[in-house]
């Protein structure tokens, strides 16, 4: 691809331009080759292989007994009730992530103003983000065990430990327990993101506000919120695709038992335990399609919401027109 272009460029232009072009191509090739090879090798080749798997009835990898069955696995994904039922659990994670965003926004707002011990609070709330998934599995199994940490803490505030539910066993509450762990883990990180966006607001705006005699609420409503609108929106939409593929909390804490098996956990079990690799691969492809749709929707929403973009588009159009005009002029 680069070779042909190079060849084309060689003929009509002057020497100065030519060396520059050649240099450009050198840089492009030098800087792009390795990352691109890595990307294709570790993302697209496996994906293509996985797509191939999804067309087979496959109990074991590389077995001569694997049979090509076309789209049957896809039909299965759509006709079984358990596949899409497990997607319902994503609802818990979506709700949890919205709560997480609301909390993050609340604490970011508080910490944006002067607060005694602010950096200590910030550090404590942020800190869970640094813990690894497997450690979180251990910590929360311990945390939720009957009569252990959570029950004890609740008994301090006067709740009767006997009347508390079993956090991981009771199907009315266990998905919420699991989703809460991810709020615990990521809320602080969200908060720091918001805080950063708020801080990036031009301080003179606040000063102007203060002169106008605006109170804190007004500052929040008219200065901070608009400044972080796009970050919030982005995070809301990201949380939907994240929730659809929720995997880690149930995988490390309950193993998907007692109705906590999310789409990904179910897929994992079908592939590794149930010997239905083709079906699991089809599930993965379907979910990716879903996430793709969500992402496209995100792009659309973001663009509509983002006024900069409209301006940019106008500029682009202008630029295009200009280029066209230049070309014509040259011709």
């Amino acid at each position: 691809m680069p070779g042909t272009t190079l060849g084309k460029q060689k003929k009509p232009f002057g020497q100065w331009l030519r060396t520059r072009k050649v240099q450009q191509w050198l840089v492009i090739i030098a800087f792009m080759t390795i990352p691109l090879i890595l990307l294709v090798t570790f993302s697209y080749v496996p994906f293509a292989k996985m797509f191939e798997f999804s067309l087979y009835k496959m109990k074991r990898y590389d077995s001569k007994n694997n049979k090509f069955i076309g789209l049957e696995n896809y039909l299965d994904v759509f006709s079984r009730d358990d596949c899409f039922n497990s997607l319902k659990l994503a609802g818990y994670y979506i709700v949890a992530s919205f709560i997480q965003l609301a909390m993050a926004l609340y604490f970011a707002t508080i910490l944006c103003f002067k607060v005694r011990g602010g950096s200590l609070f910030k550090g404590l709330i942020f800190f869970p983000y640094l813990i690894s998934g497997i450690a979180i599995g251990f910590i929360f199994k311990f945390f939720y065990t009957r009569g252990f940490v959570f029950d004890t803490v609740l008994s301090w505030i006067g709740l009767n430990p006997e009347s508390l539910p079993y956090w991981l066993k009771d199907t009315r509450i266990n998905n919420a327990s699991l989703a809460a762990t991810s709020v615990w883990r990521y809320m602080g990180q969200n908060m720091v993101l918001f805080l950063g966006a708020m801080m990036s607001v031009d301080p003179t705006l606040y000063e102007a506000c203060a002169i106008d005699g605006a109170n804190s609420w007004a500052k929040f409503r008219y200065i901070m919120l608009p400044s972080i609108k796009s970050v919030i929106l982005l995070n809301m939409i990201l949380s939907i695709s994240g929730s659809l593929s929720a995997f880690e909390p149930p995988y490390v804490i309950t193993g998907g038992t007692f109705g906590t098996s999310t789409y990904f956990v179910m897929m994992n079990s079908l592939a590794h335990e149930k010997g239905k690799i083709g079906l699991a691969a089809a599930m993965a492809v379907v979910l990716m399609g879903l996430i793709f749709i969500v992402t496209i929707a995100q792009q659309v929403i973001m663009k509509v919401a983002d006024e900069d973009w409209r301006e940019e588009r106008r500029n682009k159009k202008l630029a295009k027109a200009r280029k066209k005009a230049e070309k014509e002029a040259r011709a």
Binding site: K59, T171, T257, F258, G259, S269, E273, K274, G275, K276
Partner: peptide
């Protein structure tokens, strides 16, 4: 046996989910 066991997803001697399910349903 292996083929029927896999295709039906009963999974005798293969996975644990069907036995875990017995316990879950009984408990709830």
């Amino acid at each position: 046996f292996g083929n029927i066991n896999t295709d039906s997803e009963v999974g005798l001697n293969m996975d644990n989910t069907h036995v875990q399910m017995v316990l879950e349903e009984a408990l709830q």
